[in-house]
Design a protein around this nucleic acid. Structure first.
Lengths: 195, 195
DNA sequence: TAAAAGTCTTAAACTAGTTCATTTTTTTTC
DNA sequence: GAAAAAAAATGAACTAGTTTAAGACTTTTA
């Protein structure tokens, strides 16, 4: 089996067991997508047509505020799911941009195939129940942490939680994720390194 | 049918249809809980034994930081689900307190019954898939908003989004939710009212 | 491989939000 | 319904993080 399919099946198998036939059916519903570094997978104003699983590369998901300043909501690397769930589900225009920070390869599930999946392989209700349950736990933690920690503490937490991502992104993008200016990020890093 | 059961069945029926028999089975798995104003439904250090649906009243979910300052992660009123999902699922001790701010009545789903539910009525995989999907969309919005808006903007958003809750909670608790001090909350409110 | 573009650093002046202390107002309790 | 307790308001001194600007360093591109 090709590596990308193996990766996504391994991901799915963390929560549900699929028969060979179900695996084939699932794979038939996936679309392969490649994006070059700096290219957009999706732009604000569009309706999110896919949810993506990353098999190679790194992407950032962000919005621009009224002043045009970027706010990064997530970085996604191999074995991560990404997209704009709100837009994908509600079919309202997205406010997010998704841009590759490295040449990347993804598997996309279209909205039509997403609905079809639950009809054809009802087990996927469980898969998504578990996937969303886990994401929800992470987001609840994050939205409480975000509000109660200082920027320096959030930086230290990020480094501890995502050591493999820190080295793949710019300091500027990390600032956009932490919620501070690149200048202040620079100060924090030089301070933390001195400690 | 008693009002609390009618309320929870209405809530469930937004996402799935249950037969009369399934309704009865579901209700048999629920535990009725009453908490007086100022009493705790749950305290930090305990393992979350239930997920709760509120049929009457109002509760706040919060942690205490190292300095003992409260950070409120949600207010829950009639027709809301609450609890500590992370502790409920992982069975690790919770860091949250849940305290009633009014005399309240709830229906609890124990961890054992939660697992049983999926075996007995597999449709509930879909219900929770949809429920978590919707919560996730809200949390993603909130965790991005939290970081990019000023405290004043977050207050205005809260009032617009939860007008029915604003009048049921203290200004101090709202400050704990918005992520600022009660003193600064007071300033913001008098400023916003003057506008 | 040179030029251009983008990223990182540093520093000074500024602002949103905190802290601490005091008074007034509202709510709770007996 | 009086006393006690808690919440809200106000103000002055403080701090975490922003803004603006300029120079050094790195990466990208032709």
């Amino acid at each position: 089996m090709e590596r990308p399919y193996q990766l996504i099946l391994d991901n799915v198998s963390r929560f549900i067991d699929l028969t060979k036939l179900e695996q084939q059916k699932y794979i038939s519903l996936l679309t392969t997508v490649k994006v070059k570094r700096k290219a957009f997978l999706m732009q604000a104003g569009e309706i999110a047509k896919y949810e993506y699983f990353i098999t190679k590369g790194c992407l950032k998901v962000y919005t621009l505020d009224e002043d045009g300043a970027p706010h990064i909501s997530m970085f996604a690397v191999e074995d991560y799911w990404t997209g704009d769930l709100a837009s994908f589900i509600t079919k309202e225009p997205s406010r997010y941009f998704i841009k590759a920070t490295e040449d990347s390869e993804l598997l996309g599930v279209s909205r039509v195939n997403y609905d079809l999946l639950f009809q054809e392989i009802p087990k996927f209700e469980r898969f998504y129940r578990m996937l969303y349950q886990r994401s929800l736990i992470n987001y609840i933690r994050r939205s409480n942490h975000g509000i109660s920690l200082t920027a320096e503490e959030r930086y230290i937490e990020f480094k501890k939680k995502y050591p493999e991502i820190v080295n793949r992104i710019t300091q500027k993008d990390l600032a956009g994720y932490i919620g501070i200016t690149p200048e202040f990020m620079s100060k924090i890093i030089s301070k933390v390194n001195r400690m």
